[in-house]
């Protein structure tokens, strides 16, 4: 008989359990299932058939992949993402810069002007945009316009995700750095390119990954705004799964995952110090 019952210690580590479970059941397990489906056949045996099929859907040589519809869809997605990200950056940086540098006392109010639209349901907003495009007369007019409209929709949807991280990094740049640069002989423009721009890099990177990655897959935008005439990677995966082609869908999902991993790695998203640098963005 021991009197010493094990004491119930409530340590802070216990708080991680709910998230740990969530992570296991909704991230790790599904990921494993995707990998399983990507490399097995209907009988559940290991097979590279679907990998082969992805690269040569007509059963021809590997090089035909570069003329396949899958390849074209990936390239299209890539183009839309790159264009959307670039346009977002071009619009967001000046906006974030101006708000951060404004002498107004209530900068957050200005910022809110860009955030409030996000509180309106996203599908509703895209539908409204569609009506607007119809009114102007460029809705589903031609292939070119459809791509344009998709990019427009992506920019419209993801702009705040670009503004916020850039704003938070610019506002944190100590004014004394700029004074020091000017003191050392830099003009205003020089001080911007040598100090402000490099010091807001973390915000740009975080903004880029927050716009680039979702605009690869957000096929709601492309479907609504192009009468489903523009197909992006997200839609491709959806089509496979809807058509009960789980193995094909899984492999493409895996390719996309790899792709995103690459982008995140390239934009420095895995560096711990830069994550803390843009900590303010986690608010959204």
């Amino acid at each position: 008989m021991t009197k010493n019952k094990p004491k119930l210690h409530f340590s802070r580590k216990l708080l991680a359990i709910p998230y740990g479970l969530f992570l296991a059941f909704f991230v790790v397990v599904p990921l494993l299932i995707i990998i399983y489906y990507a490399f097995t056949d209907d009988a559940g045996k290991f097979s590279l058939d679907y990998v082969k099929y992805f690269f040569s859907e007509n059963g021809d040589s590997f090089w035909d992949f570069f003329t396949s519809s899958n390849f074209r869809t990936i390239m299209r997605s890539l183009f839309i993402s790159l264009a959307s990200t670039a346009i977002c950056l071009l619009i967001a940086y000046p906006v974030a810069y101006i708000i951060a540098k404004s002498k107004l006392k209530n900068k957050s109010m200005l910022l809110l002007l860009f955030i409030v639209p996000m509180w309106v349901n996203f599908v509703l907003r895209i539908n409204a945009l569609k009506e607007l495009l119809q009114f102007i007369g460029i809705y589903n007019r031609s292939n070119g316009w459809n791509i344009f409209n998709t990019i427009l929709g992506m920019v419209y949807d993801f702009l705040p995700f670009m503004i916020l991280p850039i704003y938070t990094t610019i506002i944190k740049i100590d004014n004394s750095y700029l004074e020091a640069a000017k003191d050392l002989g830099a003009t205003g423009a020089r001080a911007f390119t040598k100090i402000t721009l490099p010091l807001s890099k973390a915000g740009i990177m975080s903004g880029v990954s927050m716009v680039f990655l979702p605009s690869m897959t957000n096929y709601v935008v492309s479907n609504y705004l192009t009468y489903s005439n523009v197909k992006i990677v997200g839609k491709l995966i959806d089509d496979y799964f809807m058509g009960d082609l789980w193995h094909d869908g899984s492999f493409i999902a895996l390719v996309l995952l790899l792709f995103m991993f690459l982008v995140t790695w390239l934009t420095g998203g895995f560096k711990a110090d830069e994550i803390t640098e843009t900590r303010g963005t986690s608010l959204w």
């Binding site: 100590d174 004394s176 750095y177 004074e179 020091a180 640069a181 000017k182 003191d183 050392l184 002989g185 830099a186 003009t187 040598k194 100090i195 490099p198 010091l199 890099k201």
Partner: peptide, 27 residues
Amino acid sequence: PNKRPVNTVFQKYALFPHLNVFENVAF
């Protein structure tokens, strides 16, 4: 300030965090 032949040592140094020692001094 960039046209004046004076240089300042700031209270909190204001060394550029994205540059190394050499780049700071050579700025």
